[in-house]
C-alpha cells in the first residue's frame, strides 16, 4: 500500500477520468439544464428558473412519482418473497453437493 507504482497511478487516473467525463459531467449538465429556461428550437436557453421543479409538483407528475415508488416497492417485495426461499435452497443444495 505504501509504494506508488506507475501502474497503480495510471489505473486510478484512468478510472477517475472516466468517472469525471462520463458520470460527473453528464450529471452536472442535467443539473444545469433543469434550472434553465425552455426553448422550442434549441431545447434550452440561458436564464435561471426553478419553474420546472415547481411544475413537478403538479398532481399528475406527483402521481407518477408515487406510482413509481409503489411499483418499485411491490417489485422488491415480490422479489424478496420469491428470492429468499430460492436463495436458501440454492445455498443449502450447493453446500452439500460441491466440495
Amino acid at each position: 500500500m505504501t509504494d506508488r507504482s506507475p501502474f497503480k497511478t495510471a489505473v486510478v487516473a484512468v478510472v477517475a477520468f472516466w468517472i469525471l467525463v462520463f458520470v460527473l459531467l453528464p450529471n452536472l449538465l442535467v443539473l444545469a439544464a433543469s434550472v434553465l429556461a425552455r426553448d422550442e428550437v434549441r431545447f434550452i436557453r440561458p436564464g435561471f428558473t426553478l419553474a420546472h421543479y415547481r411544475a413537478l409538483m403538479s398532481t399528475e407528475i406527483l402521481g407518477i412519482f408515487v406510482r413509481s415508488i409503489a411499483y418499485a416497492a411491490g417489485t422488491t417485495a415480490i422479489c424478496l418473497a420469491v428470492g429468499y426461499p430460492f436463495a436458501f435452497l440454492l445455498a443449502r443444495s450447493s453446500a452439500r453437493s460441491c466440495c
Binding site: 442535467v30 443539473l31 425552455r38 411544475a55 413537478l56 407528475i61
Partner: peptide
Amino acid sequence: ARNWPLGAAASMTLT
C-alpha cells in the same frame, strides 16, 4: 415532448 428542462428536473429529483 421536447421539454428538456422538465425532464432534467425530474431526473435530478430521481437522482
